[in-house]
Design a protein around this nucleic acid. Structure first.
Lengths: 227, 227
DNA sequence: ATCGTCCATTGATCCAGATCAATGGAACCC
DNA sequence: GGGTTCCATTGATCTGGATCAATGGACGAT
């Protein structure tokens, strides 16, 4: 059920549109629409032609890549306010990965050709796009370093710490995504994730309570030298 | 020994300047200079402020990240014609990684502020930059998938195959970089790389000859299902 | 040429995390 | 409300690749 009236305020406040400006926003919004989808829905599929960019208004989406043997991983998990699929749309190439709703989601669908036009004509929109791409590149570099240098428990600790809104001290991380998805994002099996989480709980580093995880001491959690 | 006369033809032919156009090129080249550096030289250091973009005119450069414990990996290896460090320069953030000359290199040094100005004023330059960033994001996604899904020997096979100029059949890959660097780029130890390379040679999948490696049958090399 | 240094190779052993295999539990549907 | 299904957890075992430990060779310096 497409909906032509997205929550404008929410869109206006995203880092992307804060940089791109009001004009770019209304230009992109005019031909766009929003979709509500339940957990598990597939938003787009690897190898298919990129007709839309997606901006997540609520919920979270997993970028899932499948290799030639059919095995799958999660490359990244995007949360509310994130705009993604710019590279595929811009290069007019097929998507590198599929997108799956990890929770119920609300997505703003922006036609790729409108975006390409806008970016060519509006310097502020181009600026916002370059910033976005730069940030996203750095996120992926960070993940590569994580995978190559850090052990499973350090990766988990960092993942949880980044989910806490407060920069310092104690906090609480919302983790509504399926465990298997998080494990895949972190480059490990669900079994390893589960075991490590329970061990951390036993040590008092974290407090598991279903879809929320409390971090009593962020510094201690990150500080652990397990290699 | 900065040199104010880079090989213009070489620069003009890079994918980046083919898109950015002649005007952007002369604008960026005017305040730039080239440097010749020996293998092992450090071009820039992690955490330092990004004052320059680098365009590699010859040789290859490794992006090396160091974690808090002092361990290092190689995030990416760039070859001639590549422009890198755009994200740090554009976001005015410190470099995420250090750059090391893996062979003797010739680098064109482009001042970051000139680049930022140019990108704001020249739409063709902005377009080239968005394409570059999009491509680079996809390269990192590819690497993440590689690390998460593929075994050491498959990663090596793919790495070698991508170094062969010819798309099909047999070919020869130049591998002038130190073995340890390649191992780090592939997320394994030099020991594992060495052993796997020798095993592949024994099976006739590749032919080792110092800094060159011949691939008699690209398809067979890639086809191996060792999961 | 000869030495020293660095890097690659080779060998032996170890271990973090994967895999295989049940079992437990929460959400969903008639 | 009681299956049914799916997902998370827990247990036992296995293994790809890391680590530790020598050698061997190539290259640059003298």
């Amino acid at each position: 059920m497409p909906d032509r009236q997205p929550n404008i305020e929410l869109v206006r406040r995203t880092p992307f549109f804060m940089t791109a400006g009001e004009e770019a926003m209304s230009r992109l919004l005019r031909p766009s629409f929003t979709q509500q989808l339940p957990r598990g829905a597939v938003l787009f599929d690897q190898d298919e032609h990129a007709d839309f960019l997606h901006m997540l208004l609520g919920g979270s989406v997993g970028l899932t890549a499948r290799d030639e043997a059919g095995a799958e991983t999660v490359v990244e998990i995007f949360g509310a306010g994130e705009l993604f699929l710019v590279p595929a749309a811009y290069l007019r190439l097929p998507y590198l990965a599929s997108g799956t709703a990890l929770t119920d989601v609300r997505v703003l669908m922006i036609p790729a050709d409108v975006f390409r036009e806008g970016v060519a004509e509006d310097p502020a929109l181009a600026r916002a796009t370059m910033e976005l791409l730069s940030r996203h590149w750095r996120l992926m570099v960070d993940q590569v370093v994580d995978l190559k240098l850090r052990s499973a428990d350090r990766r988990i600790a960092r993942f949880l710490a980044r989910r806490v809104p407060e920069a310092q001290g104690a906090g609480s991380a919302e983790v509504p995504e399926p465990r298997g998805t998080i494990a895949a994002r972190l480059g490990m099996t669900p079994e390893t994730l589960s075991r490590t989480l329970n061990a951390m709980d036993a040590e008092g580093l974290i407090r598991l309570s279903g879809k929320r995880i409390d971090l009593p001491d962020r510094e201690r959690l990150l500080g652990r030298r397990s290699r």
